[in-house]
Design a protein around this nucleic acid. Structure first.
Lengths: 209, 209
DNA sequence: TAGATTGTTAATCGATTAACAATC
DNA sequence: TAGATTGTTAATCGATTAACAATC
């Protein structure tokens, strides 16, 4: 009964949507309404909730406040979560400037880059020499890193991070990282996602036009 | 027998890995070896290939050149593919500078932003006022857009793009776009992916430590 | 009460994996 | 030939959906 990755991703989406509902002044939701906002079925919503022991009222739906609290408990958003960024190139520095993380109580506390010209300070966050990453990670007990380095060095850098104690990596390099069991890797490959959109556009085009 | 999204994503990964193999001087691969490099099973590789009518030699594996050609044919990489970028903020401008697309023969031919301070020229690419996007898309027959605007305006902008003739969107805004059938949307939500890594790191931590 | 919505079970669906006959 | 690898079928697995009894 271990919930799959997609189930967890949906919980995050529910949470996002619910904060927006709350801001709009809503107090309760029905599975049906929430499902609509996230683009899934109401069965799916109820199933997901029941999987995590979240329950509502048979006739009255779910209290948004209560729901948010439970979801945040599950997703671990009640304590601040610190991560480091490795690679402060184009993508890396864009991620440093991205304000969407703070909303989730996730903070990039430091960045690292091998290139001296990238080092210094970007916004509020220091960009250190890459050689210091292991020491920093150990000293601050950081468990998660965002990896935004060139593809050719990604595997090597990832191995160093794991050796330093990193347990989770959000990887933007377009390679499959070979990483020991027990370390979590999520990869985002922008080029492949775009390629995928193009594929389906062409495929549908051919079919319907 | 319509192959799913994940199957197509895997084709792209095979293709990426194969170009690297080729650069290394390899001429043929076995399903086993390719599987390893991409992190799937060899059954999966053979299944994917057979699904798209790609075949090898019973004892001699697959010719890399032939394979690459077939994959490129399927993924539509034999003609240049032009896309526009909407939203030239942090993430948007990082994407403009990203060189990973060119490798796949995908080109961002123009960018658009409502903020005059973002307009002008970034690298080789012009950043136009957002109001011009519809005309541009129509004139150049652009079918795919990368959407990197703030969450609050994403839905509205997406609707305008669809009205202008866009058939595919790679969406970076952290919202579920409600879009008419026949338009392809892939969403990349960086915060949710990071949240997901944190979730599993905490979950495994609790279990094993 | 009648009506609506949850929570859960069972059915369906699709995707992945295993296995093995064909064959190079 | 013997051995190895493909291509495909069947088995498995997991995730999604449908349906409906419980109940507010």
């Amino acid at each position: 009964m271990i919930p799959g990755r997609n189930a967890i991703l949906r919980l995050s989406r529910y949470r996002n949507v619910l904060t927006r509902f709350k801001a709009l002044g809503f107090v309760k939701v029905f599975s049906d309404y929430l499902a609509d906002a996230v683009g899934v079925t109401s069965s799916q919503v109820r199933k997901d909730f029941s999987l995590f022991g979240i329950s509502g009222k048979k006739r009255g739906g779910y209290q948004i406040d209560e729901l948010l609290e439970k979801l945040s408990g599950i997703l671990g958003k009640n304590e601040a979560q610190n991560v480091v960024l490795v690679g402060a190139g184009n993508l890396g520095s864009a991620l440093l400037k991205y304000r969407g993380f703070g909303k989730e109580d996730i903070h990039i506390v430091a960045a690292f880059d091998a290139d001296p010209s990238k080092q210094g300070r970007l916004l509020d966050i220091a960009v250190h020499p890459f050689t210091q990453v292991a020491a920093f990670v150990q000293e601050h007990g950081i468990k998660v890193a965002i990896l935004a380095v060139p593809a050719e060095v990604a595997q090597g850098v990832a191995e160093q991070l794991v050796a330093a104690g990193i347990k989770g990596i959000l990887n933007f390099a377009p390679v499959t990282l070979r990483i020991p069991q027990g370390v979590v890797v999520n990869s985002i490959d922008v080029a492949i996602e775009l390629e995928n959109v193009l594929y389906y556009v062409h495929a549908l085009q051919g079919k319907e036009a």
